[in-house]
Design a protein around this nucleic acid. Structure first.
Length: 196
DNA sequence: TAGAGGATTGAT
DNA sequence: TCAATCCTCTAC
């Protein structure tokens, strides 16, 4: 298997990277367990639009990792109880990121079932808050390099472009016009794509 | 330093 | 449809 190089993340089109991440394999190595899943759903965010935490290049303590170079994780807490995983892209100061919204479980399924406390495989990674729990990711993982031994992404399955769908993003009504951007990408008919 | 709200989820 | 739940950002 081939780990995606840093150059994959440093490119300047966050939507291109978000599309290409669908079908890749995301791995974590947490507390002695390897877990992985095929990425089946992503969303792109850019400092150029209202949906993004770093809109107008405003840097805060929370989002500062987005202003670093691509190839790092951006993990933050949402609604006080869910950790969401982003992949930072583009060069330093160009704050862009791809939100990982859903996976199809591949390795370490029993470990993931235990972490989410369920026995239904379909439940463990079919949503952005759930997949971080399944993979053992919390906010201490913010800023980790995606080339390391704890979290990385490998080449996965070649996805027929007919199966790649683009729609509007979820849960960003506050973004006004930019909420209409077709920046959510998902694998058509894959059962792990999150319910909206 | 207080107050408001959120890139969600699962139960009702 | 709604509550859970807490960190972050903003304004005073």
């Amino acid at each position: 298997m081939k780990v995606l190089p840093e150059s994959f993340y440093l490119r300047n089109s966050v939507t291109t990277i978000a599309k290409q991440l669908v079908g890749k394999l995301l791995y974590t190595h947490s507390k002695g367990h390897i877990t992985s899943g095929l990425i089946v759903e992503t969303e792109a965010y850019s400092f150029r639009e209202h949906g993004c935490h770093a809109y107008q290049s405003r840097m805060t303590r929370r989002n500062q990792i987005m202003f670093g170079p691509g190839g790092h994780t951006y993990v933050y807490v949402c609604y006080g109880m869910h950790h969401l995983l982003n992949v930072v892209t583009n060069q330093a100061q160009q704050a862009e990121a791809v939100l990982i919204r859903a996976l199809q479980p591949v390795e370490g399924i029993q470990v993931m079932l235990d972490r989410v406390n369920t026995d239904t495989v379909k439940r463990i990674t079919s949503g952005p808050g759930k997949l971080t729990k399944a993979l053992g990711i919390d906010r201490t993982w913010n800023g980790k390099q995606l080339l390391g031994t704890e979290i990385w992404i490998e080449e996965g399955e070649k996805l027929n472009t007919r199966h790649l769908m683009a729609t509007t993003r979820v849960g960003i009504d506050y973004a006004g016009e930019d909420a209409n951007l077709p920046w959510r990408f998902y694998w058509k008919d894959n059962p792990w794509v999150s319910k909206v």
